[in-house]
Simulated scan of single mutants.
Amino acid sequence: MSDSVTSTHTVPVSTGLVALTGVNKHFGDLHVLKDINLSISKGEVVVVIGPSGSGKSTLCRAINRLEPIDTGTITLDGQPLPSEGKALAKLRADVGMVFQSFNLFAHKTILQNVTLGPLKVRKLGAKQAEQRAMELLERVGVANQAQKFPAQLSGGQQQRVAIARALAMDPKVILFDEPTSALDPEMIQEVLEVMVDLARQDMTMVVVTHEMGFARSAANRVVFMADGEIVEEADPETFFTSPTSRRAQDFLGKILKH
């Protein structure tokens, strides 16, 4: 990747695993995504940062159509996002999502939470789904919690289960929407360690986060958003040491002091 800051309008938007071209989104009179052009390559970790209300989470949710867009196109592996029906369900299977709140099914065990998607959507056999789920729970460090219910786990453990659940679908890309913001400080690191491990294994990831340490250590590219626009994007070293826009300079000046 080039060390120079790339203008968002020069990104080759048609070639990525995920590609957004001219994407606009309004909530009533509020223009939350303004002509977004972004391409994410296979195996790339893109961290999206910026002030609250800048459109980061809406961008993330648009990629798997949790938020429909007004204009523009979003493609996954060269195919436009379907709007409804079975094709949309298949898309959601290929695009994993990890939310701020863990969104686990409270009445199902940890193992059942992780096997549900593979059984219902991927049509795996029960034995195969359980074996894969246990491998993933082992990978994120909570295999010994498999028979418990979500309420019996800490927030950090629940979020690691949510990551295992996303991985169980063998997605092409995983979206993380501020995955540590609902956690107590001591639990944040255990979740970030799982995410760093995924990054090292070339998982394609789009991560909306306020964790600057993760952005510096795990991202291939940092995308800085403000007021619904991509203001700047660059590799982490370039972005954090010499941001070119005044908006990014001001943001980093405030956030890196804390």
Rank of each mutant, 00 (worst) to 15 (best):
Q157D: 10
S41Y: 12
S217P: 07
H210T: 02
L17V: 10
K254Q: 13
E232Q: 02
Q145K: 14
I163P: 04
M212Y: 06
K172G: 09
L137A: 04
I36R: 00
T15G: 11
L136H: 03
F240I: 08
R122I: 10
D29M: 13
N24Q: 11
A129M: 05
L175C: 08
F240L: 08
V46G: 01
A133C: 07
A164K: 07
K56L: 04
P236F: 12
Q189E: 13
K108S: 12
L198P: 01
S7V: 08
F240K: 03
I36H: 00
G55N: 00
T6Y: 12
R132W: 08
I63C: 03
S83W: 14
L88I: 05
S217Q: 14
T244I: 06
H210R: 01
G156A: 11
I36P: 00
E232W: 00
N103P: 06
E186N: 09
D170N: 15
R65Y: 10
H107N: 10
G253T: 08
A168V: 05
V98C: 10
S57A: 13
I74S: 06
M187W: 09
G213H: 11
G253L: 06
Q201M: 13
A248P: 00
K148N: 09
M169V: 12
V222K: 01
G125M: 09
R247Q: 08
A146G: 05
V222T: 02
K120W: 10
E229H: 03
V194W: 05
M97R: 07
V23W: 01
K127M: 13
A248R: 00
F102Y: 15
H26E: 11
L137Q: 01
G141I: 07
F239C: 06
G53K: 05
A87N: 07
L252D: 01
E84R: 14
I188W: 02
I255N: 06
L38K: 02
D235N: 14
L38Q: 01
G213A: 13
P80L: 15
R160T: 08
L17D: 05
M205K: 04
S245R: 05
S83I: 14
P51T: 10
N24H: 13
P243T: 05
A62M: 04
A182S: 11
E130Y: 04
P236V: 13
L33Q: 00
A89S: 12
Q189S: 11
A62S: 13
L38A: 01
V191R: 02
S41K: 13
I74W: 05
R200K: 15
L153E: 12
K254W: 11
R132A: 09
Q145H: 12
I230S: 00
K34V: 03
N64I: 07
T244F: 05
T238V: 06
G72T: 03
M134G: 01
V11E: 11
Q249L: 07
V45A: 11
D202T: 09
K108D: 07
K172W: 09
K120M: 15
Q157H: 10
A162H: 10
L88G: 04
S217G: 05
A164D: 06
K34N: 06
L20D: 01
T58S: 11
L192R: 02
L33N: 00
V208L: 03
S217C: 12
G22S: 15
Q128P: 02
E193V: 14
R92P: 03
E84V: 08
G253A: 07
S41A: 15
N144S: 15
A62G: 04
F27P: 02
